[in-house]
């Protein structure tokens, strides 16, 4: 126990040379509210705080496990096991990078910006690589387990990978339940270009 505390303090010495209060006051003085975006955006929840360590240093395993459990508990599954919407609409959500920036119109629907980080439809060449390729995702399986796993990943990715870089599209209200179903269809539907591979 003592070793563990010493280790945490050592880490805190390097990372936390900047005390939390100093950080908070610097951030609050360094930003201004604009349009629909207020300074409340600068506050961290426990997960964000845990996942802000420099150089990907790993934190306390027990805390990580607790955060994963909290993330899992946050997931709201769709009613009637009805996971799949329209892949055509899902494709638009995947392509749309707007939403929640102060430059965006809050009246318009948010996008998922999936292509920023993932390859999906192989015909789309402008894809990023911060996340894995999801081309032919439907071939990974269509079982309820696979559907629930993918829904959970979209809703709150931290249920599986505590400090994943991916946004919490469901838990943070970035996408609506219907939009998530549409993205699911884009991933799973055999007719979706994600799975309908040209020779």
């Amino acid at each position: 126990m003592k070793i563990k505390i010493t280790f945490v303090l050592w880490l805190a010495g390097c990372i936390g040379f900047v005390q939390a209060e100093d950080m908070s006051s610097a951030l609050n003085a360094g930003f201004k509210s604009i349009n629909q975006v207020g300074l409340d955006r600068l506050e961290q929840d426990p997960l964000q705080a845990f996942c802000s360590k420099p150089r990907e240093e790993s934190g306390d395993a027990a805390v990580a496990a607790e955060l994963r459990e909290t993330a899992m508990a946050s997931v709201v599954l769709p009613g009637n096991g009805d996971y799949l919407g329209s892949w055509e609409r899902g494709q638009q959500v995947a392509n749309n990078g707007k939403g929640l920036q102060y430059s965006d119109n809050p009246e318009e629907a948010n996008g998922g910006n999936c292509y920023a980080c993932h390859q999906l439809d192989p015909a789309e060449v402008a894809y990023g690589n911060l996340g894995p390729s999801l081309t032919n995702y439907g071939a990974r399986g269509q079982s309820d387990v696979m559907l629930q796993y993918t829904w959970t990943k979209l809703w709150n990715t931290h249920a599986y990978n505590v400090c994943s870089h991916m946004p919490r599209f469901g838990a943070q209200g970035i996408l609506t339940e219907q939009q998530l179903k549409d993205v699911m269809a884009f991933l799973f539907d055999p007719d979706s270009p994600v799975n309908n591979l040209a020779e």
Partner: peptide, 8 residues
């Protein structure tokens, strides 16, 4: 390294 906001 400070993660915050709706997109983390």
């Amino acid at each position: 390294y400070y993660r915050a906001g709706p997109h983390d």
